[in-house]
Design a protein around this nucleic acid. Structure first.
Lengths: 206, 206
DNA sequence: CCAATCGATAGCCGAACGGATGATTTGGAA
DNA sequence: TTCCAAATCATCCGTTCGGCTATCGATTGG
C-alpha cells in the first residue's frame, strides 16, 4: 500500500485527488495540508511514501521551497508535483528542489495513478507535455544582462534611461532588447514584460 | 434537489467537486464537461439548475465566453464561476457574461455549498475576497474599458490591433491609454503592464 | 586552438508611440 | 436640470521603437 500525503491550498483539489485515489486499491491518502507549515508537520508525523505537492500555496512559502525542506528531512518522502503551470521556471525550480516528478492538473486520472506508483518506486516521472518542453527547446535561456534589462523595462524605462543606468550606449540596449524579444517570442516591450512576469523571469515590483 | 453541472478542464477538480457535493443531500451532479463545446451540449441536454464554471478551459473558448453563451439559451442555467484567480479583469468579464456568482477554489467546502444553494435561488454570490476587491479598492479606479485595454496591452497588441479588436478608432485607443497612464502614474505601455499586474488588475498569461 | 556565446557598439529608416488639445454624445449624480 | 465622467473621434508633432545588418574583444568549452 502506497501512503500518499496531499499538499494543496484548494480544498476542492484535495477532495478530488482523495476521491480519485480512494478508487485505487494500492493507494491511500494518509493526510492533507493546505500550507507550508502544516505540510512539514504532516510529513514529519506520518512519513508518507509520496507527497503530492501543489506549487501554489497561496500566501507564504511556495511549493518548491516546501519540497526542498521535505527532501532535507531524515527520511525524505518522494515528492510529486501536481500543479497547473508548466513554465520553465516552475519546472526547473521544482526539479531543483528535489521533486521526483511533475504532473499537470489536467492530466487524466490514469496518468496520475501511474505517476504516483512510479514515484513510489523511486522513478522520475514527467508529464508528456512537461518532458516535451524540457527536451525539445530547453527554453528561452536569458543571460544575466538580459534579465537585468527586463527588470528595468518593467519599470517603464526608455532605451536612453537604461543606457544611462547601465553605462552603455543606446545601441547596446537595443541589441539586448532584440535578443530578449527573439528569445521570448514577442516583438515589443509590453509583451516582453508580461511574458517575463508570467514566466517568473522577473517579479512584478514597483 | 439542486441539479449541478461541472465545467472544468481538470479531471482532478471535477472529481473533487463531485466528491464534495455528493456528501450533500440536496445537491447532485448531473454531468461534467471539460471544454466549451461539450459544455454547451451538456447544458442543452440536461438543463441543470446551476453550472459550476471554471474560467480557464485550456485551449479554445474561455469560461466567460461559454458563460455568455449558456446565458443566451432558452432556459438559461445559473452560472457560478469557480476559479483560481481574483483579478478585476476576470471578475468583471465573468459578471458581464451573466455569471450569478464568483468563488475561488481555495474556498472552504461549506462556502461552496452555500454559494450553490444561493445561486440556485437566483441570488448573486461573491466570495468575500472578491466582493472586497470590487467594493473597497484602494488604488486608482480604472473603468471596465480601461481594464479591457490593459488586458490587450499585456499581450503586446499595438494601438492598431486594439482598435480593430474593439471596433473603435486608434484615436480612441490612444485616448484610453492616456487615461490609463495617468491613473497608474506611468508614461508608457511597458510600465503600465507591470503596474497592472502588480496591482492585480490583470493577470499575466493568455 | 577554434567555434560559440556574450556583451558592447554603430547607422539607417519606417512605423509606432505619447503628449497636447479639443470636440461630441450619453447617462447618471447632484 | 445642470454638471460630470466615460467613451468616442480627430489632428499635429516630436520622440522613441524595432528591424536589419555588421563589427569587435573577451570568455568558455570542446
Amino acid at each position: 500500500m502506497i501512503r500518499v500525503a496531499l499538499v494543496d491550498d484548494h480544498p476542492v483539489v484535495r477532495a478530488g485527488v482523495r476521491a480519485l485515489l480512494e478508487g485505487q486499491e494500492d493507494l491511500t491518502v494518509v493526510g492533507e495540508a493546505s500550507d507550508a507549515h502544516s505540510a512539514e508537520q504532516l510529513v514529519a508525523a506520518l512519513h508518507p511514501d509520496v507527497v503530492l505537492m501543489d506549487l501554489n500555496l497561496g500566501a507564504g512559502a511556495g511549493g518548491a521551497e516546501v519540497t526542498a525542506r521535505l527532501r532535507a528531512l531524515a527520511e525524505p518522502p518522494y515528492v510529486l508535483v501536481l500543479t497547473t503551470y508548466d513554465t520553465e521556471a516552475d519546472i526547473m525550480s521544482a526539479i531543483d528542489a528535489g521533486a521526483s516528478g511533475y504532473l499537470l492538473k489536467d492530466a487524466p486520472p490514469e496518468d496520475l495513478f501511474r505517476a504516483i506508483r512510479g514515484t513510489a518506486r523511486g522513478e522520475t516521472v514527467l508529464a508528456p507535455a512537461v518532458a516535451a518542453r524540457l527536451v525539445r527547446r530547453s527554453g528561452p535561456t536569458l543571460t544575466e544582462r538580459e534579465v537585468e534589462l527586463l527588470g528595468l523595462l518593467a519599470t517603464g524605462k526608455s532605451n536612453r534611461d537604461m543606457a544611462k543606468k547601465l553605462y552603455v550606449s543606446e545601441a547596446t540596449v537595443k541589441s539586448h532588447l532584440a535578443h530578449i524579444y527573439s528569445k521570448l517570442e514577442v516583438d515589443n516591450r509590453a509583451a516582453a514584460v508580461a511574458r517575463a512576469i508570467e514566466q517568473r523571469i522577473i517579479r512584478p515590483v514597483s
